[in-house]
Nucleic acid binder design. Structure first.
Length: 580
DNA sequence: CCCCCCCC
């Protein structure tokens, strides 16, 4: 077994032997890489490949195998004399047999036809629709870069037989590249899963006819690399329906599962990066009442419900459901909740939220759910737990730690993603110019308006004119601690606190009494605060620039700050308070 | 071709 050195994607190539024949071109499907890292697949181990696909590649010279997920039997044979002498045991075919059988229905070969190099045909068998498994889509695409001819993918007449999971509503978009509508769904078969999306005409054609949880034959869609940022399905590719795509209901009884999860135990959430999409299962220990929040950017009213999920790691984490999922949820019986594709955030430690693509199942009929329910009902409910979602804001929170400006700069905070920190600092200077502006009077807009000099003010964001405006503050402040200085931006509410007056007053004074206006800025300087700061990379004239904004500020709480200093001293000296 | 996904 060796790891293929090229490419960003971790990939293993195996030398496999059934005792008689061997192949050194067995490519392990990437979602099975964990079997290598977990030590399940080792040198000289015996594996049963229940699912694999053969391809002839590179001018008939190489054989590519892509092993499929069901590796039932592995055993490490300490005294295995040589890999090529693994005995084929006639009477235990279900353990040792590597079933390469020409007519075996679950093996699909794509023959390379020597005399017709541009035609890749999958032969029809028994007048039935030729069915590939969903993971073979991954194979065809994944391999094309290194192993398969480029044109193979679009020329193969492939079909998958899949169950439709998690079908979304139709959504429209409008951006600089155009507008349109789409819906997406998760497709699943025994071998794997893939996200599929239909746009525009395909939405009209398929959205009503494709039913959730039903099984379909789907043929001739486009495959493209999946963006892992938005989809945690176990596939490096995703499917887009195109003009050629056909969807036919499958009325036969199939063994296609209903949902595939890759659950992360709650105690592992702390070691994962924020914004990771994960599958989670837990007992709903308690559910809060439904509540409403106003979305900042749009002013939309959103319904949400928080709950605490608990699992056998004795950790609990907050999960937030949104919209109808929040409204319909009943936590009174402490159900098992499974979410596929929940988003991890680092708020108050760690918490989880569903996003539009998340699939939520209540009391799913799966092994993990029954096991968890059994554990909870037999004492788990009384066990002490650690809550990952209650780290109090204050000192030591994940994104709420004290840092000096020098430390923040040395750690290059904000250069990869938004970073939050606290600092005790003085305001040394507030710029007067551009500190106050005439803003759109509509709620939650705040966009600067254009004075049309006819008593009307135009808001480009709202696309309309108003006969009034509101003053809003945006302060550029120079903050200084004992290590360095930064320029930080403070917006309206916080700026009003810092200046000790209203934006309206500042706006009016600027035009009527410039001395009084200036005095507010002078008086606000050389005051000490504890600032909650956010650093974020923003592009300005095509150039990346770290911008610091003030998320909050309050006068220094000496008691709180002393505790921080004592902790720091203890860390540095190795002497605890008790010993003092 | 989306990729917004929310709030503390």
């Amino acid at each position: 077994m060796k790891r293929i050195p090229t490419g960003s994607q971790e990939r293993y190539r195996l030398l496999v032997s059934d005792g008689e024949w061997s192949s050194s071109f067995a490519m392990l499907a990437t979602h099975l890489n964990c079997k290598v890292t977990e030590g399940v697949i080792t040198n000289n181990c015996i594996i049963q490949m229940n699912r694999y696909v053969c391809n002839t590649v590179q001018g008939n010279k190489k054989l590519g195998l892509n092993m499929k997920p069901h590796i039932n039997q592995t055993s490490y044979q300490q005294n295995q004399p040589h890999i090529n002498q693994i005995p084929y045991q006639q009477n235990h075919p279900h353990i040792y047999q590597i079933p390469y059988q020409q007519n075996q229905p679950h093996i699909y070969q794509i023959p390379y036809q020597q005399n017709q190099p541009h035609i890749y045909q999958i032969p029809y068998q028994q007048n039935q629709c030729q069915v590939l498994q969903a993971a073979q889509c991954q194979l065809l695409s994944l391999e094309q870069a290194s192993m398969l001819p480029r044109q193979l993918l679009c020329q193969v007449q492939w079909t998958v037989c899949v169950r439709v999971n998690n079908k979304t509503d139709i959504r429209t978009w409008s951006n600089s590249r155009g507008e349109g509508k789409l819906f997406s769904m998760d497709l699943i078969d025994e071998s794997g899963e893939i996200r599929a999306t239909a746009f525009n005409e395909q939405v009209d054609k398929f959205h009503d006819t494709i039913e959730l949880n039903k099984v379909y034959f789907i043929s001739s869609a486009t495959l493209k690399p999946a963006n892992k940022q938005y989809c945690n399905l176990m596939n490096d590719y995703e499917m887009t329906f195109n003009k050629m795509t056909e969807v036919t209901p499958c009325h036969e009884v199939t063994s296609i599962p209903t949902m595939q999860f890759n659950f992360v135990p709650i105690d592992q959430l702390e070691s994962l990066n924020k914004d990771t999409l994960i599958d989670i299962i837990g007992v709903c220990k308690e559910a809060h009442d439904i509540s409403t929040v106003i979305q900042k950017t749009s002013g939309r009213e959103l319904k949400k419900r928080d709950m605490q999920l608990l699992d056998e790691t004795q950790r609990e984490v907050r999960l937030t459901l949104w919209g109808s999922q929040a409204e319909n949820f009943d936590g009174s019986q402490q159900p098992i909740v499974a979410v596929k594709g929940a988003k991890l955030s680092d708020f108050n430690g760690r918490c989880l939220s569903t996003i539009a693509s998340s699939a939520v199942q209540i009391n799913p009929d799966i092994r993990e759910a029954h096991k968890l329910k059994g554990w909870f009902d037999n004492g788990g409910c009384n066990i002490g737990t650690v809550n990952l979602s209650n780290q109090r804001s204050g000192f030591g929170g994940a994104n709420d730690t004290f840092k000096t400006f020098g430390e923040a700069m040395a750690e290059k905070l904000g250069s990869i993603e938004s970073d939050f920190y606290k600092n005790k600092a003085y305001i040394t200077l507030i710029r007067h110019d551009n500190s106050v502006y005439a803003a759109c009077p509509s709620d939650n807009c705040n966009k600067k308006v254009i004075d049309l000099n006819n008593g009307m003010y135009r808001c480009e964001k709202c696309g309309r004119e108003y006969d009034t405006f509101q003053w809003r503050l945006m302060l550029q402040m120079n903050l200084m601690d004992c290590t360095n200085t930064v320029w930080a931006t403070a917006f309206h509410d916080i700026a009003e606190e810092i200046l000790g007056t209203t934006a309206e007053n500042i706006g009016n004074l600027k035009e009527t009494d410039h001395d009084a206006f200036t005095k507010f800025f002078i008086n606000a300087t050389f005051k000490e605060y504890v600032f909650n700061l956010r650093v974020k990379m923003e592009s300005y004239n095509d150039e990346g620039r770290l911008k610091t904004s003030v998320n909050g500020c309050k006068p220094l709480d000496l008691k709180e700050y002393n505790k921080l200093l004592i902790d720091e001293i203890e860390k540095l000296s190795g002497v605890s308070k008790g010993e003092c």
